[in-house]
Amino acid sequence: MSTADLPYRPCVGVMLLNGSGKVFVGQRLDTTLEAWQMPQGGIDPGEQPLETALRELGEETGIRPEHVSLIAEAPQEFRYDLPPELIGKVWKGRYRGQVQRWFLFRFLGSDNDIRIDTQHPEFRAWKWADPTDLPTIIVPFKRTLYREVLGAFSTHLG
């Protein structure tokens, strides 16, 4: 099977804004890169994207649904392709990349409500980042995606 025949993994992404207009980002445990990313994860069969966003946010950050308020959902899906060296190595080789629904949430809690030491931790560190810094601190193959997400939510940022 060629790469072009592989499907995209259905996924969600979460942009979480604090009261200062900064965005939550975490450093993945499974890489030594200094790259940061926003929470994201796969949509389970039968699950609605908004449900997935809230579940993934909890699984990756410990943030409970009562600590967030939905601001917006991006009007379109976004997709990205994995670099060739990662195809066949991640997601058991079943996907060529991801197709994502993105949600923008306001964080209503305090930093003490963020617990990345979850049952199945994904991040080794976290911080609040300026939205304009996101494309420069993400892994290079996701930079275009992050610019598109920033564009989709631009009326709600800064």
Score class of each variant (00 low, 15 high):
residue 72 A to V: 02
residue 149 V to E: 04
residue 29 L to M: 11
residue 36 W to F: 13
residue 31 T to Q: 05
residue 155 T to V: 14
residue 5 D to F: 06
residue 102 W to Y: 15
residue 70 L to D: 04
residue 123 F to V: 04
residue 48 Q to Y: 07
residue 72 A to S: 11
residue 11 C to V: 01
residue 133 D to T: 13
residue 50 L to R: 14
residue 31 T to I: 03
residue 75 P to M: 09
residue 15 M to T: 15
residue 109 G to Y: 04
residue 81 D to E: 09
residue 115 R to H: 15
residue 67 H to K: 10
residue 69 S to C: 06
residue 55 R to G: 10
residue 122 E to L: 12
residue 94 R to H: 09
residue 137 I to K: 10
residue 82 L to M: 10
residue 113 D to V: 05
residue 153 F to E: 00
residue 4 A to I: 00
residue 158 G to R: 01
residue 102 W to E: 13
residue 74 A to Q: 12
residue 123 F to P: 08
residue 12 V to M: 01
residue 35 A to W: 00
residue 154 S to E: 13
residue 94 R to Y: 01
residue 85 E to C: 03
residue 132 T to Y: 00
residue 89 K to C: 02
residue 43 I to V: 12
residue 120 H to I: 04
residue 71 I to Q: 12
residue 92 K to R: 07
residue 54 L to P: 14
residue 71 I to T: 10
residue 18 N to K: 05
residue 117 D to P: 06
residue 95 Y to G: 08
residue 110 S to F: 08
residue 68 V to P: 01
residue 38 M to S: 00
residue 88 G to M: 14
residue 35 A to E: 02
residue 60 E to W: 03
residue 71 I to R: 14
residue 137 I to V: 13
residue 42 G to Y: 05
residue 1 M to I: 06
residue 54 L to W: 03
residue 9 R to L: 08
residue 21 G to M: 01
residue 156 H to M: 00
